[in-house]
């Protein structure tokens, strides 16, 4: 399994989880915190996020994820963070009691 494949898979899972409401943008940002984003997102992407928020007048998790798409999340954010988000959502859904740290 290559890094590209794993990245692609995490992008799909995050996107599917959002589309199917397994978790929402708030849940994503609960794990991909501003510190995480600030640490791992490139400067250009951080700039876009800020620009979009300024244009809309607010920065919401939804708007952040409109800019930082699942593909970009999977590309820049550590997969452990994304997986923690996915696993936590699964635990909330009652699928498992174990959450990968």
């Amino acid at each position: 399994m290559s890094q590209d494949q794993r990245q692609q898979w995490f992008a799909r899972v995050v996107e599917s989880g959002l589309q199917n409401q397994i978790f929402n943008p708030t849940d994503v940002l609960a794990h991909a915190t501003p510190d995480v984003l600030a640490t791992h997102l490139p400067a250009e992407l951080l700039s876009k996020v800020l620009q979009a928020s300024l244009a809309a007048g607010a920065m919401t998790p939804e708007r952040v994820l409109e800019t930082v798409t699942p593909e970009l999340l999977a590309q820049h954010v550590p997969h452990e963070v994304l997986w923690a988000c996915i696993a936590a959502a699964a635990a909330r859904a009652g699928l498992t009691n174990v959450v990968v740290p």
Binding site: M1, Q5, R6, W9, V13, S16, Q19, N20, I22, L95
Partner: peptide, 17 residues
């Protein structure tokens, strides 16, 4: 959740995850 499962597992198999 089923659609999520399908997407997650299918892509995992497709991508070799």
């Amino acid at each position: 959740i089923k659609a999520f499962f399908v997407e997650a597992l299918t892509s995992a198999l497709d991508l070799g995850i």
